[in-house]
Nucleic acid binder design. Structure first.
Length: 487
DNA sequence: CGAGCGCATTCTAAAATGCGCTCGGTGCTTTAGT
């Protein structure tokens, strides 16, 4: 039986690029790292094997909303033996899932769920042939500081008896790939990687001296930009203020809002009731809106990876789009502040933490009052207070110091590379590809502001309707019936 | 680091200036049940 025959029981006729390779690798028992662009049907890569392999496939997913979306999509496609287990579920439903665990083929969970001892022990009792880590770049992007449970997935896998592992993501530099592989303990995995290059997105970057002129320029750009348009901001306040300053209809979106409001705004943007959205980096993961024509950055992302992820939300339909960044001097400072807030420096470690560890009770007091982000405080707490029973204190502090030093170095390098990137006079596309260690490529006319004059944002749409539009339309017609649900 | 806020100061007033303080991004979880 060939892998293609497996499509018989699905709504699909053919595989998209990469899917067949990934599925074959999994079915032959190989660990797989799949770096596939959004829109390439990543869900099928584990849905098919999960249906075939005996037992329960566990999918680790970063967001509750993402889990629920996937479950809804799969059920709509006729795949019923699937559920999501998370804290927003009413207790009665959670209980039902536990009782029917043996009837399920796919179960979505968060990494935090897997950190709960009682939950892990339940999973250890059943047969788990395949463990999937969706949006696997989170291991590297969030796992070190923000969501440390991402670092424990490797241990969880070992506890389950080393099931086959599939790591899925849309963007992963060499650094992120090796981070994923070492964290999940992937031995000699099959790597199915496709280019991060998005030929249809024009890259433009400019720097204004002061925040006022940036704000003014940003407003001009948003006004003339082809819609729908996402404007990424560095702070929640900027998202709110700029949204109120913008003359047309717009909305804002950030992590400090109530879930209902976030859902409602997201829905309105998805269904074109709002075509201008000012958002922090909270917006985007798992959002599949094909026709976003412009992504405008009013802040500098802390890494090239994050920049690529955010601009990648434009032009998913393959038609032309523009990614525009308008930066101000102050933007180059903000990411350094987040490093300061999350990773204790040598000075604090040497002059505060080390002396405090000599006096009983002083350590707790120092950690609770430390000037760091909440998740950093809890990391210090769990490493130095809760873990007190084992090992010498001095040794544990020294290990932490080495760890923090390395993390500061890594984060600093990412920020520095991003800063160098926006200032460089050479082709932005070539720079991005070089960062991802891909072959150099410069698009003919639709490339970047260092290669060509920036086209008028609104012209993107016009051009598409007259020239590229009919081709896309034809392609769509020819593929009717073969379309897969994007996940 | 630096933007933005409240507050005090400042030539009897009013608006402007300056000081010190605060804040700045991403999300998950606390199984159930007599």
């Amino acid at each position: 039986m060939t892998v293609t025959n497996l499509l018989q029981d699905t709504p699909f006729d053919t595989f998209r690029p990469g899917q067949e390779e990934v599925i074959s690798a999994i079915l032959s028992g190989r660990d797989t790292l799949a770096v596939l662009p959004t829109g390439s049907g990543k869900t099928l890569c584990y849905q098919l094997p999960a249906g075939i392999m005996p037992g329960l496939t566990i999918v680790v997913s970063p967001l509750v909303s993402l889990m629920d979306d996937q479950v809804t999509q799969l059920k709509m496609n006729g795949f019923q033996r699937v559920a999501a287990l998370h804290g927003n579920k009413p207790p009665a439903e959670k209980k039902r899932i536990w009782q029917k665990l043996h009837l399920l083929k796919l179960l979505y969970v968060s990494p935090e769920m897997l950190a709960v001892e009682k939950i892990r022990s339940q999973f250890k009792k059943i047969n788990v042939p395949l463990l999937v880590v969706d949006e696997a770049h989170c291991i590297s992007q969030w796992g070190h500081e923000f969501r440390p449970d991402y670092q424990n997935l490797g241990r969880f896998r070992k506890e389950l008896g080393e099931p086959v592992l599939l790591a899925l993501t849309a963007t992963a530099s060499e650094r992120v790939r090796s981070d994923i592989m070492s964290s999940l303990n992937l031995q000699n995995p099959v790597i199915e990687a496709h280019s991060v290059n998005r030929e249809n997105i024009f890259l433009a970057i400019e720097t204004q001296h002061d925040p006022q002129s940036r704000q003014q320029r940003l407003m001009e750009l948003v006004t003339s930009a082809a819609k729908p348009c996402i404007i990424y901001t560095g702070t929640r306040r900027d998202a709110e203020v700029w949204s109120s300053l913008y003359k047309g209809a717009s909305a804002y979106y950030h992590g400090g809002m109530h879930a209902e409001d976030r859902n409602s705004i997201q829905g309105q943007f998805l269904y074109n009731e709002i075509d201008v959205l000012f958002a922090t980096s909270a917006f985007g993961m798992g959002i599949n809106k094909p026709d976003v024509r412009s992504v405008i950055h009013g802040y500098m992302p802390p890494s090239i990876e994050q920049y690529v992820q955010e601009i990648g939300r434009a032009g998913r339909d393959g038609e032309r789009a523009i990614a525009y960044a308008v930066l101000a001097e102050s933007d180059f400072v903000l990411p350094w502040h987040f490093v300061e807030m999350e990773i204790p420096g040598q000075k604090w470690l040497q002059e505060e933490l080390l002396p405090a560890s000599e006096t009983p009770g002083k350590l707790e007091e120092l950690i609770e009052g430390a000037p760091f982000a909440e998740h950093t405080t809890s990391l210090l707490r769990s490493h130095l207070i809760k873990a007190k029973a084992k090992g010498s204190e001095r040794k544990r502090i020294e290990r932490l110091m080495t760890h923090f030093e390395q993390r500061r170095r890594e984060r600093s390098q990412q920020i520095q590379k991003m800063t160098d990137f926006v200032h460089a006079p050479s082709c932005f596309r070539k720079q991005v590809l070089a960062y991802f260690e891909e072959e150099p490529f410069a698009a003919d006319k639709w490339c970047c502001s260092n290669c060509h004059p920036v086209p008028k944002l609104s012209s993107a749409l016009v051009k598409l309707e007259s020239t590229v539009g009919w081709q896309a339309l034809l392609k769509q017609k020819l593929h009717v019936g073969a379309e897969q649900n994007e996940t």
